[in-house]
């Protein structure tokens, strides 16, 4: 028994050791969306590692999926940084999702987004950082630098590619493909291959009921 316990302790001391499926779970932050927590390996957004989002088209949930997390961070007065988004985040929608805009910072200089994100991550002050690499080819070195910086940040870190960008070989913990819906495909996961690769929100009964009523009214 004691031999077993000490072996377990020894193994636990090395988070970089690959242990197949039985790997020790990495720390995560809840996404704030039940179906997503349930479906993501580890049960949330990984902490201290990069999460890469690859939307098929812009507006496939790359901001919407993060909103509950951003709301939680900003409500705790932890600053949230969006570095180099291609479009303008709508303040009304964010405020309605619960984001306290006072603690939101947008880096508008897209060319400097990677540098700015790295500074924010290294400071260890941000609740969450999302970075859009500038248009064009994304260098593997740039993503590696972000990964190193992300290890110093307490919150989840997202790298969000543009629809026409192809990501470099992954150093991230989690890589998700996004399609309209949103429909999520887990392309890479820290715990190796997982069973169900496609995730999406449960069909909402409220909408179904509304549709049913409309249908019923029209039938009358």
């Amino acid at each position: 028994m004691s031999v077993h316990a000490s072996l377990e302790q020894l193994l636990n001391r090395r988070p970089d050791l690959w242990r197949g499926r039985a790997r020790r779970s990495l720390p995560v932050a809840a996404t704030g969306l039940g179906w997503l927590d349930h479906g993501l390996p580890g049960g949330g957004w990984p902490l201290g590692r990069l999460t890469e989002l690859l939307p098929r088209l812009s507006g496939c949930g790359e901001l919407g999926l993060l909103l509950p997390l951003l709301a939680r961070c900003t409500q705790r007065a932890e600053p949230v940084v969006l570095a180099g988004p291609a479009l303008v985040p709508g303040p009304q929608a964010m405020a309605r999702a619960g984001v306290v805009l006072e603690h939101l910072v947008v880096v508008r200089e897209a060319d400097e987004a990677l540098w700015a994100a790295e500074q924010c991550l290294k400071s260890g002050l941000c609740g969450s950082v999302a970075v859009w690499p500038p248009a064009g080819r994304v260098a593997e070195k740039a993503v590696r630098r972000l990964q190193l910086a992300a290890e110093q940040s307490p919150g989840p870190t997202f790298v969000i590619y543009r629809p026409d960008q192809s990501p470099p070989p992954s150093v991230s913990a989690l890589r998700l493909g996004l399609r309209p819906g949103p429909e999520i495909e887990v392309l890479r996961s820290p715990a190796g291959p997982i069973d169900s690769k496609r995730l999406g929100p449960d069909p909402e009964p409220v909408i179904e009921l509304e549709r049913y009523r409309r249908h019923a009214r029209s039938a009358q």
């Binding site: 600053p79 303040p91 805009l101 880096v107 508008r108």
Partner: peptide
């Protein structure tokens, strides 16, 4: 003491990005 560290970070960013390179949003 993040009260001091956060303004310091913003200053650093602004020094390179310029006054308009870094913003908040308001309705």
């Amino acid at each position: 003491n993040r009260g001091d560290a956060w303004p310091a970070l913003l200053d650093r960013l602004r020094a390179r990005l310029g006054e308009h390179g870094l913003s908040g949003l308001a309705p």
